[in-house]
Amino acid sequence: MRFDLEIKCKKIVGGRATGKLLLSKKPINFLGMVNTRSGEITTTSSGFERQNLKGKILVFPNSIGSSVGAYTIYSLKSNSVAPNGMICTNNVDITTASGCAISNIPLAFIDNQRYDDLVNCIRILGEPKEMEITLDTEEGKIFIERKSI
């Protein structure tokens, strides 16, 4: 059995990427909370410690804290442990936008309504880690798919 959902998004950095969903309800301080060599989230305050950003589609409100977080995103990409794509749900902050722009990581924004759609989809489909997301910012769309249940 196969479920699909399509959600509109606003393009910030163009591109198409696919990966498993990594959802954080809390903002991320890239400089303080992320290991640029491994891609791991290294602190508990984000709510998903021991998760790894590599290859994921990261859905999170926005980044906070240090301005150097933009270089952290670039380092993640250079070390091949970056998320494949990112989606901001509160606002697209300058750190995330500039970091993704220079790293060629597709980046999109979804508003509260679309975010609620996404959360409802997760509730229906089950474990977020099993879900695959395709982010196509050129089309302005996010496709959510669970391969099997």
């Binding site: 606002n91 995330t96 936008a97 993704c100 924004f109």
Partner: peptide
Amino acid sequence: SAAYRILVAIGEAT
């Protein structure tokens, strides 16, 4: 050029 790419992305974001 890289600088303008950054500014354009921020322009879109904000």
